[in-house]
């Protein structure tokens, strides 16, 4: 990993630096208080318990990867973070989930407003097919009655999603005229347009070819500057490439969580070691 310390410019925690495609090491968090705190989170589908007592914290402007074999609960975990889990009939979640200290699972928290602060990108790109590229990005703005110049916001977020140059001449074209990888970046732009603080990504590149995947991974590095990201992936190498911290789930339990480098080279738990070395999965 290229350390940003190798550039000549001295860095301060709050200075905006021109960004090359460098990565930030996990050892340089900017602020100490965690963005997300999860305590005792359990989730059920009807009678089946999918998550047991999960405890972890996510540092602001970092990437946390959730890994584990199929059915281990990592996607369920992700969906609890923006309360999409409870939309499934018969599903429920209990525990404490703090965003900047405020409990998201509390009765007085409206899931609708929550989802503006915690955005989500899905496994398969799901742009609204009847809308143009521009309208897709602006969809969240229109819904949430955000004022201001939508066109300017659309351009800004498309640039953030590294898609602007490819679509700037066809903002009015149907969203479906884009390739799969472009559609996924469009969905990312759409999620970013409402300016969330946390971005949840559920296996965002699993439906894409390797080149598109690489672009998404580069994008995550860039987005990390401004957003806190939690990404679920079944691809361990991807987790190693993009994340600062990794959480390993197995059969509904959070087995181990820690800096990515440690999880992959020197994990504390045997199960973690078995998984990352490919002994099962």
């Amino acid at each position: 990993m290229i350390s940003s310390l190798e550039t000549a410019t001295p860095m301060t925690p709050f200075e905006e630096r021109p960004h090359e495609s460098g990565h930030r090491t996990a050892a340089a968090p900017r602020v100490a208080t965690p963005k997300l705190t999860v305590r005792g989170l359990s989730a059920w589908y009807g009678k089946n318990r999918a998550l047991h007592d999960v405890n972890l914290t996510v540092a602001p402007r970092s990437v946390m990867a959730a890994i584990g074999p199929s059915g281990c609960g990592k996607s369920t975990f992700l969906r609890c973070l923006n309360r999409m889990h409870e939309l499934i009939p018969g599903a429920r979640a209990e525990g404490t989930l703090l965003l900047d200290g405020k409990d998201l699972l509390g009765r007085d928290v409206d899931p609708v407003t929550l989802r503006r602060r915690v955005g989500m990108v899905f496994q398969r790109p799901n742009p609204f097919p009847t809308m143009s590229v521009r309208d897709n990005v602006a969809a969240g703005l229109r819904l949430n009655r955000v004022g201001g110049d939508h066109d300017e916001i659309v351009e800004r977020t498309l640039r953030q999603a590294a898609l602007w140059d490819e679509v700037k001449d066809r903002l009015g074209a149907s969203a479906l005229s884009l390739s799969g990888g472009q559609q996924q970046r469009l969905c990312i732009a759409r999620a970013l347009a409402v300016e969330p603080e946390v971005l949840l990504m559920d296996e965002p590149a699993s439906a894409l070819d390797p080149i598109a995947t690489a672009k998404i991974e580069d994008l995550i590095h860039e987005l990390k500057e401004r957003y806190t990201i939690v990404i679920v992936t079944h691809n361990m190498q991807q987790a190693g490439r993009v994340s600062d911290h990794t959480a390993f789930f197995y059969m509904g339990d959070l087995v181990e969580v820690g800096p990515t480098e440690k999880i992959f080279t020197n994990p504390s738990e045997k199960r973690t070691e078995d998984y990352v070395t490919g002994k099962f999965g």
Partner: peptide
């Protein structure tokens, strides 16, 4: 406010 209206 817009949110109350949307809920309504």
């Amino acid at each position: 406010n817009p949110l109350r209206w949307r809920r309504f």
